Simulated scan of single mutants.
Amino acid sequence: MKNITCMIVEDEPNAMKLLEDYTGKIPFLHLSGKCYDAMAAVSFLQNNTVDVIFLDINMPSLTGIEMAAMIPKDQKIIFTTAYSEYALDSFEYHVVDYLLKPITFKRFMQAVNKLQSFMQAEPEESETSAMPGFLFVKSGKQVHRIEYASVFYLEALKEYIAIHTPKEKILVYKRMKDVAEVLPPQFVRIHNSYIVNLQHIRNIGSNMVQINEQRLPVSNSYRGLFQQRISERMW
Rank of each mutant, 00 (worst) to 15 (best):
M59F: 10
D89E: 14
M59I: 07
E92G: 11
D74C: 10
L115T: 01
V96W: 03
T63E: 05
A82G: 15
T63W: 04
D74I: 03
T63Y: 06
M70T: 09
K114Y: 10
P60A: 09
L62I: 08
Q120F: 13
L55A: 04
K114D: 11
L55S: 03
M109F: 12
A121T: 08
P102S: 12
M131N: 05
D89A: 03
F91L: 12
P123H: 07
Q110G: 13
Q120A: 15
K106G: 02
F108M: 06
I71M: 06
Y83T: 03
E124V: 09
A130P: 02
H94V: 01
K73E: 12
A68L: 02
F108P: 00
D74R: 14
M109D: 13
S84H: 11
M59D: 08
A111N: 09
L100M: 10
K76R: 14
Q110T: 12
L88N: 03
I103M: 04
V52T: 04
A82M: 07
I103Q: 05
Y93R: 01
P123D: 04
F118G: 06
M59K: 07
S129V: 15
M59L: 12
D97V: 00
N113Q: 15
P72N: 08
M119G: 08
T81A: 02
E92R: 11
G64K: 02
Q116R: 14
I78S: 03
M109L: 15
S126P: 00
E92C: 11
I65P: 05
M131P: 00
Q110A: 14
G64S: 05
D97G: 08
P102C: 10
I77C: 00
P132S: 07
S117M: 13
E85D: 15
A87D: 03
H94Y: 15
P132H: 09
S84Q: 13
M70W: 11
A82T: 11
L99K: 07
V96H: 04
A121P: 03
I53M: 14
P60R: 05
S61R: 15
I71F: 13
I78H: 02
V96E: 00
F91Y: 15
M59R: 08
D56H: 06
M109Y: 15
N113G: 11
P102H: 08
P102E: 11
M131T: 12
M109V: 15
M131R: 12
E125A: 13
K106T: 13
K101F: 06
V96I: 13
F118Y: 14
A69F: 09
Q116S: 12
A87R: 07
T63G: 04
P132E: 08
L88T: 02
L88Y: 03
L62H: 04
L62F: 06
K76D: 07
A121L: 11
T104P: 05
E124G: 14
L100A: 07
N113C: 12
L99D: 09
N113H: 13
V52C: 08
Q120G: 10
I103P: 04
E127I: 10
K76L: 15
P60D: 13
E127H: 10
M119C: 05
R107W: 01
F79Y: 13
P132T: 05
F108W: 07
V52G: 01
L99Y: 05
I53C: 08
K73N: 14
V112F: 01
E127G: 07
